[in-house]
């Protein structure tokens, strides 16, 4: 496989995953909007910008004008926002267009038609009323694309690069969501058990689509910070947890090692991280310090990522 092909596949998946994550964030915001508490809502909007890592960019273009419609449009369609859903899908498509021949016609169709359809949405003037429809559209199309990849691609290196992109993006996103709100997960006596806590925790779970899963695992009375940490960071059964993504990245990098019959630094690193994670517990994480732990995690993930690029994307000459 051409190195560039691997890189294009990887970024296709990352952008698709990112579009999906942003749609989920917007969904949470939409829910909050239905709860009548304006001051809290205001905060929620800025923190969504923060979570998706684009607050500075927003301020650059629109100053401190945190209006709901504006932020929604910024997150969904705005070309000025390189991570808007529209831009993510456009970039996913232009990446996959470069490697049209590496994916099945069905996968190409799924991505290409998603782009053409969202382009139609973008041609109309945005109104908040369209939000639920757009969110549903994005989520279902992302699932369609994933499903098509699962069902039609050979399970070979193409599939591995596509998958790694997805899980690197997801691990990064989940880690950032937890980090933006890490303080609500700290055992501070002021908040424990209070209404606010419960509300915030629920939001966090919802923003990674893990609310129902959490309830199923821990029951109605299990909502507390230790369980949430456990669930979002360490639980292998939760598809949004850091552990889940790490395990996937690990197994796909191992596949690549086997296919290419060559060791890779990225694989060595990730398997070390996974080993360490297996020995962790929520308590230990809190001892390290949640924020510190997450920073260290993001740093390590970054290192795995740059080794992955060195190993496969830059076309090592010998």
């Amino acid at each position: 496989m051409l190195s560039r092909t691997a890189e294009n596949l990887y970024w296709t998946s990352r952008y698709i995953e990112r579009a999906d994550s942003i749609a989920r964030l917007l969904e949470v915001a939409y829910r909050i909007n239905l709860i009548p508490n304006t001051s809290r809502t205001q905060n929620e909007w800025t923190s969504i910008l923060e979570t998706s890592g684009i607050k500075d960019e927003y301020i650059l273009h629109y100053k401190e004008n945190f209006k709901k419609d504006k932020i929604e449009n910024f997150l969904i369609f705005d070309e000025k926002n390189g991570s808007s859903i529209f831009e993510c899908i456009r970039k996913a498509r232009s990446n996959i267009k470069m490697v049209r021949t590496a994916v099945t016609l069905e996968v190409w169709n799924a991505v290409n038609s998603t782009f053409h359809d969202i382009e139609k949405f973008s041609e109309k003037k945005y109104s908040s009323r369209d939000l639920p429809g757009i969110i549903d559209f994005v989520k279902s199309r992302v699932n369609l694309i994933r499903g098509t990849i699962q069902n039609t691609q050979l399970i070979d290196d193409t599939f591995d690069f596509l998958s790694i992109g997805t899980y690197v993006e997801r691990a990064d996103f989940t880690a950032r969501i937890i980090d933006v709100k890490y303080f609500i997960l700290l055992p501070s006596s002021n908040y424990v058990g209070s209404q606010i806590d419960n509300f915030q925790w629920t939001l966090m779970l919802r923003s990674v689509s893990a609310y129902r899963g959490f309830k199923q695992t821990y029951g109605n009375n299990g909502v507390n910070h230790m369980n949430i940490i456990e669930f979002l960071i360490l639980d292998m059964t939760c598809p949004r947890s850091l552990m889940f993504s790490l395990d996937k990245i690990n197994s796909h990098l191992t596949n690549l090692k086997k296919i290419y019959k060559k060791n890779s630094k990225a694989e060595e690193e990730i398997s070390l991280i996974v080993k360490k994670f297996k020995k962790l517990s929520a308590k230990k994480i809190l001892n390290i310090g949640l924020h510190e732990f997450l920073l260290e995690f993001i740093r390590k993930l970054y290192s795995v990522n740059s080794n992955l690029q060195n190993n496969y994307f830059f076309g090592k000459e010998k």
Binding site: M1, L2, S3, R4, Y260, K316, E317, K318
Partner: peptide, 9 residues
């Protein structure tokens, strides 16, 4: 002339 691939050149 070589092409860059994930396996090397």
């Amino acid at each position: 002339t070589y092409m860059k691939t994930t396996r090397g050149r």
